[in-house]
């Protein structure tokens, strides 16, 4: 139809595999986000999408556009670094916020504070 017509198979195949893997990981992450029971479990699920879900699709985009533009197109790496460095910061705050709120409500199965931990280890 258009720009996709002249692409050789050795480019198209890895691009297709990476795109399918990436989007499947993102979907699995959100399925986990909806199905898992406790908040701490749910904190793990979206990392599927934000680690290799993003990574695979960015790699595919780099590969495809490097071929289409016939020059190395690498600026996707910036977006990858942005996502990889920033999402953990959000999750870190969310995990700590959940812990503080659970402690304030005296919820069961919450570990005691790291500060008052002299006896263990």
């Amino acid at each position: 139809m258009n720009h996709l017509a002249g692409i050789p198979l050795w480019i198209a195949l890895p691009v297709a595999v990476l795109v399918v893997t990436g989007s499947s990981l993102a979907l699995l992450g959100t399925i986990g986000l909806v199905r898992l029971r406790s908040f701490y479990d749910r904190l793990h699920a979206p990392t599927l999408g934000t680690s290799w879900g993003v990574g695979a699709i960015l790699l595919a985009s780099m590969l495809l556009f490097s071929w289409l533009e016939s020059r190395p197109v690498l600026h996707e790496a910036l977006l990858g670094i942005l996502v990889i460095v920033t999402t953990p910061a959000t999750y870190l705050f969310l995990g700590r916020a959940a812990l503080h709120r659970d402690r304030a409500e005296n919820a069961p199965d919450v570990p005691k504070a790291a500060a008052d931990d002299k006896a263990q280890d």
Binding site: M1, L4, A5, I7, P8, L9, I11, A12, L13, V15, A16, V17, V19, V20
Partner: peptide, 9 residues
Amino acid sequence: MSETLLTAA
């Protein structure tokens, strides 16, 4: 071939 593959993906 590669066009259909990519479109489907």
